[in-house]
Each structure stands twice: as structure tokens, then as C-alpha cells.
């Protein structure tokens, strides 16, 4: 059986209030969702609290996962990102300070000529990111992995958030063109 189908079947049981199914779901997915929370939040305690809320949300919204139309894992990862990002913004947490965090950019223009490597990112998006400039990919990683807002990035760089937004929107448009090919 396809893994996504298995996952969808377990989520369907969770949607029916099947408690053992929630445990099975947790055992199979918590390490990935916890990694997302841990990356976005500044410490283990806050990441664990976010993870609790993630599974509460999954328990409460499992019936909605099919309506969401994403694959089950994508839906759960999106829940984790949203919850952890919300916690992070309420905490007013500092940007990620772990060794593998995306680098903080000093100036948008400095790296504008260099092309990105998009390390470790698979799929068509990974390929398209290789056509993007390093600064854009770093900003995307800061947004996606570290849960930063445009304002967070602008603060670290000392620029206007509107400039960051404009740059990111251009990046999204270019990525979309690449993915369309």
C-alpha cells in the first residue's frame, strides 16, 4: 500500500475519534513535525508545547484534511509550520541561532549575482532554486524553515520590509515560471 494512502487511512480513523490511531499517527509523524517546531522555536520547551498544539489541531481537524486537498503529510507539516510560527511570533523569539540556520543576510545586493545551491532540497522546487540567486534562496529558507516574517528579515538587514516583500514576490514569480516548465 502506498505510504500516503496508509497515512490517509490512519488520519481517517483519527477523524472518527479513534484514539489508538492518533498514537499510531504520532509515532509515524512526530519526528518530522517536531523537527519543524524545533527549527522555528528557540528552545526545546517551546517546541514541545507547539508540538502538543499541533497534534491537538490534527485531532480536531483531521476530518478537514481531505478537504484541504494537499497530501496528508503536507497538510500536517503545514499545521506544524503554522502553529510553530504563531508561537514564535507570540514569543517574539530571536532568529534561529542553530548552526544549520539559514545565514542572516547583511545586504540584499551583496550576493545578488551568485547562484544558489539549495542544499538538501529535493523535488522540482530544489531544481528551480538552483536557478535562483543565493540571497533569494536564503530568504526563502528563513521564511519557510525558520518561520521568519518579512519584518524579521528586514530588521536583521536594516532595510524596509517592503523591499524584502518585493524581492520575495519576484522570487515566487520566477519560481512559478520555472516550475511551470
Amino acid at each position: 500500500m502506498d505510504t500516503q494512502e496508509q497515512l490517509a487511512a490512519v488520519i481517517a480513523r483519527v477523524a472518527l475519534g479513534d484514539r489508538p490511531a492518533l498514537r499510531v499517527l504520532y509515532q509515524g509523524t512526530a519526528p518530522k513535525l517536531y523537527a519543524i517546531c524545533l527549527r522555528i522555536l528557540p528552545d526545546q520547551d517551546s517546541a514541545e508545547r507547539a508540538l502538543q498544539e499541533v497534534y491537538q489541531e490534527i485531532w480536531n481537524s483531521a476530518a478537514m484534511s481531505r478537504a484541504n486537498r494537499s497530501s496528508p503529510m503536507t497538510w500536517m507539516m503545514a499545521v506544524a509550520r503554522t502553529v510553530a510560527t504563531g508561537h514564535r511570533r507570540r514569543l517574539g523569539a530571536a532568529p534561529c541561532d542553530q548552526p544549520d540556520c539559514a545565514p542572516v543576510l547583511a545586504d540584499l545586493s551583496v550576493l545578488s549575482g551568485a547562484q544558489a545551491k539549495a542544499p538538501g532540497i529535493g523535488g522540482p522546487l530544489g531544481l528551480c532554486l538552483r536557478e535562483q540567486q543565493v540571497a533569494d534562496v536564503d530568504m526563502l529558507r528563513q521564511v519557510c524553515l525558520d518561520g521568519l516574517s518579512y519584518s524579521d528579515i528586514a530588521d536583521t538587514m536594516g532595510v524596509d520590509p517592503a523591499a524584502v516583500q518585493s524581492r520575495m514576490r519576484r522570487c515566487f514569480t520566477q519560481l512559478r515560471e520555472c516550475l511551470r516548465r
Binding site: R19, L22, R23, Y26, A30, P31, K32, Y34, A35, I36, L38, R39, Q44, A47, E48, L51, Q52, Y55, Q56, W59, S70, S71, M73, T74, W75, M77, A78, R81, P119, G120, I121, G122, G123, P124, L125, G126, L140, R141, C144, L145, L175, L179
Partner: peptide
Amino acid sequence: AEHFADISDSLPEVAPAAAVLRRIETEIF
């Protein structure tokens, strides 16, 4: 969402402490 999931998917998995599952179950049930 599907494409951005590839970025989140690049994170190495981390097992949470065992107590987290107990807290989740207590919270929900």
C-alpha cells in the same frame, strides 16, 4: 504547499521526548 513541503522535508527528523505524547493524550483525552 506541496512544493514548499520539500524545503521543510530537508530538515533531519528529531524524536521528541516520550513525555510529549503523554501530555498530548492527557490534553486531548
